[in-house]
């Protein structure tokens, strides 16, 4: 099953199971979603539960916040992560804060879905990776699934969760196939997946970079006799730090791979957590592999150069062993 089909299935199942679940966003109905994630849902669930909206991100999220406070379970779609910036007021000042502002009397059980990532030559206004922005905000849960199975399991969990969830998908993963368990239920947030077990170096890959890390691990094994352990955190908040720390205590080395910018990134944060909590187990400085510190270029070769590939991960892993 493809990643987009897994998401579609999660939406469909949750809408069938719970009448309060509804979808809102730009082109989610008639056009069936910019990336076809909502294909067939308008037809099956009708206009009241699959609502096309104008181009008005802050309003879309704001309506979702209100609907959630009133007892519904909105799933709003933002066409790309870059457009979520227009809705930051609603996401940060409202969705994330309301539960705290009203001492728990109100809650915002809402999912904000958005795809991120480079590779389709959509330039700097469509192609960034912003999980770090949302990770920064207390009150939000953040998921970044990298496989069809996780996409489905985590989206189901996100819809059922009473907290606002920023659900980050990846544009280049929509077409990716993978096994999805039949009748699989919701997954738990805060459980990392060990994609590959290894003894020598821990490689943490965020979102699409989990796959890139896995590819690098194969190369490390084949060409460099380095046995890498690859961890996909799956959700960044809550973060399964225990699994990562256990791995680092075993391997004594850590590499963090993310597509976003280096400064204040997920890797910067995780590197700090690792050195705070596993300093005496480290055999080398924590390495970060990140996207380039520039707005995403439109030019194809430049765009390719601006986000990490497996060879960058291999180099970073080697650097924890020797001068490279």
């Amino acid at each position: 099953m493809r990643y987009r089909e897994a998401l579609n299935q999660a939406l469909r199942e949750e809408m069938e199971a719970d009448e309060s679940v509804f979808i809102m966003g730009e082109d989610v109905g008639v056009f069936q979603g910019a990336f076809k994630v909502t294909a067939g849902l308008l037809e099956d669930f009708g206009e009241k539960r699959v609502r096309d909206t104008p181009i008005s991100e802050n309003t879309i999220v704001g309506m979702g916040v209100g609907a959630a406070m009133a007892g519904l379970r909105p799933v709003v779609e933002i066409m790309t992560v870059n457009f979520a910036l227009l809705a930051m007021d609603q996401i940060v000042n409202h969705a994330a804060a309301i539960h705290y502002m009203f001492a728990g009397q109100a809650r915002v059980p809402m999912v904000i879905r958005m795809p991120q990532g480079a590779g389709h030559q959509l330039g700097p206004t469509h192609s960034h990776s912003f999980e770090a922005f949302f990770l920064h905000v207390p009150g939000l849960l953040v998921a970044a699934p990298s496989t069809p199975a996780d996409a489905k399991g985590l989206l189901k969990a996100a819809i059922r969760d009473d907290n606002p969830v920023v659900f980050i998908e990846h544009e280049t993963l929509y077409g990716q196939r993978g096994e999805v368990p039949e009748n699989g239920g919701p997954m738990r947030f805060g459980e990392a997946a060990v994609r590959r077990e290894g003894e020598d170096v821990t490689v943490v890959g965020i979102s699409r970079m989990a796959g890139t890390a896995l590819k690098a691990a194969e190369e490390l094994a084949e060409k460099h006799e380095i046995d890498a352990e690859v961890i996909d955190p799956r959700t960044l908040r809550p973060l399964d730090l225990d699994t990562i720390l256990d791995s680092v205590k075993k391997t004594n080395r850590a590499v963090i791979v993310e597509e976003g910018w280096p400064h204040g990134g997920v890797g910067a944060n995780l590197a700090a957590l690792i050195q705070e909590q596993a300093f005496d187990w480290l055999d080398a400085p924590v390495q970060r592999v990140t996207g380039a510190d520039v707005p995403m270029p439109y030019s194809k070769p430049l765009e390719q150069a601006a986000f990490p590939h497996s060879e960058h991960v291999v180099q970073a892993a080697l650097a924890t062993f020797r001068d490279v």
Binding site: D280, W281, L282
Partner: peptide
């Protein structure tokens, strides 16, 4: 060892 007098060793090596 001669570089500022501090031996360069990783945290786990020191422990």
């Amino acid at each position: 060892a001669g570089d500022g007098g501090r031996v360069k060793a990783s945290p786990v090596a020191r422990r």
